[in-house]
């Protein structure tokens, strides 16, 4: 694939995963070396990076964002909450995991996942 443009959606995260993602694209880990990049609009993206359990307010925007991303696309669930709602499971504002709302292609475990784990997953997609 070589290149991967990602739109990040915070579906209800505690911001732990966000800090790790910021670090992934920061100078230390610099994931752009491997052809991945964060972009501002799903119209520019090849994939969606989702963090957190999907809250009620974010379920429709998440669906719309994935819908707005051109195909072929990947949906990457970052962190345990995205995978199975983590500590927020059963919360009154939580709809479910990302996979309950949109089909997930790649899931990255960890609470939060280490930047190297995220990079490993992204490199798995870009094959670089």
């Amino acid at each position: 694939m070589g290149s991967l443009q990602l739109r990040h959606v915070d579906a209800g995260s505690c911001n732990g995963c966000e800090i790790e993602i910021a670090s992934v694209f920061g100078p230390v880990y610099d994931a752009e070396r491997f052809g991945t990049r964060l972009v501002a609009s799903p119209r520019h993206a090849d994939g969606v990076l989702v963090t957190g359990p999907v809250t009620r307010n974010m379920a429709v925007p998440l669906k719309k964002t994935v819908e707005a991303t051109p195909q072929p696309r990947v949906v990457i669930a970052v962190g345990d909450c995205a995978h199975d709602c983590g500590v927020f499971r059963g919360g009154y504002g939580v709809v479910g995991s990302v996979n309950d709302v949109v089909p997930v292609d790649v899931s990255i475990p960890g609470c939060p996942p280490h930047p190297t784990a995220i990079i490993e997953a992204l490199r798995g997609i870009t094959r670089r």
Binding site: V9, R43, P61, L62, K64, T65, E67, A68, Q71
Partner: peptide, 12 residues
Amino acid sequence: PRVVEAWGCGRQ
């Protein structure tokens, strides 16, 4: 081509 609604930052 796939026709989807105009991108409005996911607003409901």
